[in-house]
Amino acid sequence: MAGSNPNAKPMDLTLKVWRQRNRTADGQLVDYQVKNISPDMSFLEMLDVLNEDLLHKGEDPVAFDHDCREGICGSCNLYINGRAHGPEPGTTTCQLHMRKFKDGDTIVVEPWRAAAFPVNRDLSVDRSAFDRIIQAGGYVSVNTGGVPDANEIPVPKSIADRAFDAATCIGCGACVASCKNASAMLFVSAKVSQLALLPQGQVERKTRVENMVAQMDKEGFGACTNIGSCAAECPVGISLENIAILNREFLAAKATSNNLA
């Protein structure tokens, strides 16, 4: 029952999958064979096939994070053949399709690697560090109610568009995973520049960047060395320009804020 391409032939593949029982256990790459993989399958559907197979054999399926499977929730996070989210640019793992691979291929699947992202099990990692960075200031402090009418805050379209471009970050962590330094600068910069661009974000502009960067450092992420892997692998195309904005915001805040700490 082929979808689009009736000529596409099913594939047999060798998988090398990182297996690790829990956070403290040792892990290793384990070889698996999957057969009859349709090119129209998504990568995660291929893993579903593997997992059903393992379950039937009485083995533990491979744990991996996923949810919406349409590229927006940011749950899925696989390092495939040495690339975050696999070989296809601008694509989350769930939107990567098997037609990008060939019959007989060997595919290595590893979890995101970062000190700040410990492995829960197999391919599932703990990305709560991102939440804690947002908690440090990735918001506009307004309570529910008592806000002005929406149209009382005009925003130039070009600014709104740039803010939106930054705001599309899905928090998947591919930037950290692909960065040689496991730096979270692209993630942090996306939120900082979204709110630095918008009028709503001006009030807390300085404290926000100071606190978010401090938390980022505390979590143990590396420092940005402007390599560009993050933006190249970002599935939603967050631009490096945001990192420059973050640097600028940080510098300005440190130079002029009243914070003596």
């Binding site: 918001y139 506009v140 307004v142 529910t144 109610g145 806000v147 002005p148 009418d149 929406a150 149209n151 805050i153 005009p154 925003v155 130039p156 379209k157 709104a160 568009d161 803010a163 939106f164 705001a167 979204q194 709110l195 918008l198 709503q200 974000g201």
Partner: peptide, 22 residues
């Protein structure tokens, strides 16, 4: 109507016209 006000105040980047309004 309150929802839109609330979201804009939070910095939700809704689509805008060239005049800067929603």
């Amino acid at each position: 109507v309150n929802i839109i006000d609330q979201c804009v105040a939070q910095g939700v980047p809704f689509a805008r016209e060239y005049g800067g309004l929603l």
